[in-house]
């Protein structure tokens, strides 16, 4: 087990290095490097200054050399400065990551809480009216683009009804006398982003739960469990769902990374200060250092969740052992 995890971690690391190099290369292809930004800010700059600046920032070096410098810098903990915000990247990544993490986890938990009962209800009565109705909503959920849904939610709940804030992270200038007030206030800002981020995964998850439950319920051991006198509740949850969980684990783990990166649009839409919005604004603002780190984090997220899926596989399915 440990050697399996170590091996997979090593593989993950190699993939991260390759992908970050590709990202790095792509970034250099973007029009406008930092010096060009300076030129546009100061048109009277002399050519010698430009050459000197390029040399100073290492922009005259070939890409692979600049990449190596960047790698050695970040591995020693120096993530560089954000050009837009004039603060070290480390300082801005922390809170953004936390915010995105809260948003993604809440959304994942929420979609699972809704999707699992829906999927099971469908699987217990396949092709019934209930099944068709839930399926209709699932497909609607899968088909609706989240940015459109987000806008509609804002129009209805923030603009028309005024129940919830249209965007942001917390009420400005609010002080929190206790942690509970903080949770309540920030929770209010989370509702709309979480809903618009979850609708799609609810549709997807409950379709998966349905099919994997249907398959699980057809197994002989379900009949055995019933023949032992187990109640319907025990048969469904302990015997059928426990088995249906095996294929679900992968899908959930992989979905988490897609929720994490899918938060990009949602965060931008709701002005939620997460990594997604950071990526967006850093690319728009040519903020090289921030964009690179955000990319690496997003890529690592996907890879790590894949690893988590593999490990969880071994936990939920005793037939799989990692040697």
């Amino acid at each position: 087990m440990t050697t399996f995890i170590l091996r997979r971690l090593l593989q993950t690391l190699v993939v991260i290095v390759i992908l970050s190099y590709v990202c790095f290369g792509l970034m250099t292809l973007m029009p406008g490097d930092p010096v060009e930004m300076m030129i546009s800010a100061n048109p009277k700059i002399s050519t010698e200054d430009i050459v000197r600046l390029r040399e100073f920032y290492g922009l005259d070096q070939p890409v692979y050399k600049r990449y190596l410098t960047w790698v050695s810098d970040i591995t020693s903990g120096d993530l560089g400065y954000s050009r837009t915000y004039r603060i070290p990247v480390t300082e801005m990544m922390g809170p953004s990551l936390r915010a995105t993490f809260i948003l993604s986890v809440t959304s994942l938990v929420f979609s699972l809480l809704v999707a699992i009962p829906l999927g099971i209800a469908c699987a217990l009565k396949p092709n019934s009216k209930l099944d068709y109705t839930i399926n209709l909503f699932n497909f609607a959920g899968i088909s609706l683009p989240s940015f459109w849904l987000g806008i509609v939610l804002i129009i209805i709940f923030a603009v028309k009804l005024g129940w919830l804030p249209a965007g942001g992270y917390q009420t400005t200038g609010m002080s929190y006398p206790s942690w509970w007030n903080e949770v309540l206030d920030k929770g209010k800002y989370l509702i709309l982003p979480v809903v618009s981020l979850s609708i799609q995964s609810i549709g997807r998850f409950s379709r998966f739960v349905r099919s994997s439950m249907l398959e699980s319920l057809r197994n002989d051991f379900i009949r055995t469990a019933r023949a032992k006198g187990m109640s319907a509740r025990v048969v469904i949850w302990r015997h059928a769902f426990r088995n249906a969980l095996i294929p679900l684990v992968t899908i959930i783990a992989i979905s988490f990374s897609s929720i994490f990166s899918g938060a990009l649009i949602t965060e931008t839409l709701f002005a939620y200060p997460g990594v997604g919005r950071l990526i967006y604004s850093s690319i728009m603002g040519n903020d090289f250092n921030v964009a690179m780190i955000s990319f690496v984090i997003s890529v690592s997220m996907v890879l790590i969740m894949n690893l988590v899926a593999d490990i969880l596989y071994g936990v939920v399915d005793p037939r799989i052992s990692y040697k």
Partner: peptide, 27 residues
């Protein structure tokens, strides 16, 4: 239903054809 559940597996039990698939693989 609850009455038959208490009979099944208690007073009345059943053995199945396929021992490969009749046992739950994850328990």
């Amino acid at each position: 239903e609850p009455e038959i559940e208490s009979v099944r597996g208690g007073q009345m039990a059943m053995i199945f054809q396929e021992p490969m698939t009749a046992l739950n693989p994850v328990l």
